[in-house]
Design a binder for these strands. Sequence first.
DNA 1: TTAAATATACCGACCGTCGGTCTGTTTCGC
DNA 2: GCGAAACAGACCGACGGTCGGTATATTTAA
Lengths: 227, 227
Amino acid sequence: MTRVRTNKPSEQRREEFLDAAEQLFMQQGYDSTSVNDLLKAVGLSKGAFYHHFDSKQAVLEALTDRMLTSFAPHIQGLIDDPALPALEKWRALMSQSNRWKLEHKDALLLQARAMHQGSNLKLRLTLTEKTRRLAVPLYAQLLAQGAREGVFDIEQPEATAELLFALLAAQGERITEILLAPDSAPEPVEACCQLLAASQQALERTLAAPAGSLPLADPALIAAWFE
Amino acid sequence: MTRVRTNKPSEQRREEFLDAAEQLFMQQGYDSTSVNDLLKAVGLSKGAFYHHFDSKQAVLEALTDRMLTSFAPHIQGLIDDPALPALEKWRALMSQSNRWKLEHKDALLLQARAMHQGSNLKLRLTLTEKTRRLAVPLYAQLLAQGAREGVFDIEQPEATAELLFALLAAQGERITEILLAPDSAPEPVEACCQLLAASQQALERTLAAPAGSLPLADPALIAAWFE
DNA sequence: TTAAATATACCGACCGTCGGTCTGTTTCGC
DNA sequence: GCGAAACAGACCGACGGTCGGTATATTTAA
C-alpha cells in the first residue's frame, strides 16, 4: 500500500505542517493534538515529520514564531518613526490594533476559547512569553521617547515597560474572561469598560501622563465586541 | 512476592502522596514525575494511588491547595483587623512576607529553580492562578479601606486590585529571573533595586498614595538575597 | 465471643496512546 | 545512474489510567 509520493522543498512542507498544527492546536489544544493527528492532517508519515522537525515542541516554537513575526516589522516601523511624537504613536498603536482585532473578531474569539482550554497551557505561555520579549523593548523605546518629550515622567523606561506589559496583559486576560463567559457578569459591557477605565488611569498615573492622553478603547468598540 | 500491608486512613495516605509529590515535583518537575515515581517514593501500588486520587492532575490540584491554604488565614486575619489603617496593613504585609521569605531563602531559591524548569509549567501556572484568586479579593479589601481613609484615590478597588496583583507578580518574576541568573546582569543587586523602585513608584502613583508610603523592600534586604 | 458480612485499602497485570527512533524505500537534481 | 534529500511505516519504551482481585479493618449478628 505505497502511497503516491510528491516530494516538496523543506520550507513548503514545514509550512504545511505548521498550517495543520495551527488549525488543530486551535481546535483541540496542543497537548490533545498528537503527532499522529498532524500526520493524518497533512497526509504524510512519521518519517516525514521527524525529517522536518526535531520534536513536537519544535512545532510549537516554529508556530509561535510564525504567529508573531508577521506583526513585528510594521509595529517596529511605527515605533521607529522619527517624526511622530510618543503620544501619537500610542494612539496609532491602539487604534490600529483595536481596528484589526475587531475585524478579526470571530477568529480571535475562537482562538481565545482554544487558548483557555487547559490542553493549551504550553502554547499560551510560549506565546505570551515571546510577545513579552518582543513588546517590552518597543514599549521601552516609546516610554523613553515620551520622557524625552516631557509627556512622561519616568526614571527607568525598561523596568516601567515590563510593568506596562504586565498591566496590559492582565487587563486583556480579564476582558477575555468576560468575553468568553458574558453571563458571568450581570453587565459585561459595563464591566469591561470599568476595567479599561481603571487600566487607563493606572497607566496614565504610572507614566505621569495627562489624564486622557493614553486611551485604550472607547465604549463603542467594547459594545461592538458583544455583537 | 506479596508485600506487607499496612492500611492507613485516607487522609494520612493522601498526605504521604502529597509529600512525595511536593518533593519530586520540586526536583524533577511535574511533567517529568511519573505516577510510578510517586508509587516508588511512597512504597505503594498503582491501585493505592488511584484509590486516593482520581488522576495525576488531581495531585497537582490538591498539592497547590495545600501550599496556599496554610498562609491564607493569617493574612485574612491581618486584612480584617478593624483597628489597623490600610497603610499599616500594607507595611505589615510586606515586612512579614519579606522576613519570612528571607528566612526560607534557600528553600525558596530551590523552589524557584524548580518552577522555571519547563516541565513545571502546569504547576507554576496553577499556583499563580490560585494565588491570584486568593490575593485579589484581599487586595481589593485593602484598597477599599485605603480609599475610605483617604490615603488612596481609586474608583474601582476590584479592577485596581487585579492590576496591583499583575504588577507585583511581574516584578516578582523579573527579580526571580535575576536571582536565578545573577550573571546575566552586570550589577544584579542594583538591577533588582531599580526594578523595586520602579514598581513602588508605579504602585503609589496608580493608587495616588503619597510617595514612599507603599514600601516594597529596602536595598539591604535585596543585598541579603545575593549572599 | 466470635464468625460472618461488609466496607475500605491496596495489589499489580494489563491496556491504549503517546513522542520518538530506526531501517529501508522512493524521488529528484546533477 | 548516483548520491542526497524526502519520505514510509514498523517498532520502541514510557506514560497515565483501568480492572479484577486480595488483604485488612470494622460492623453486625448469632
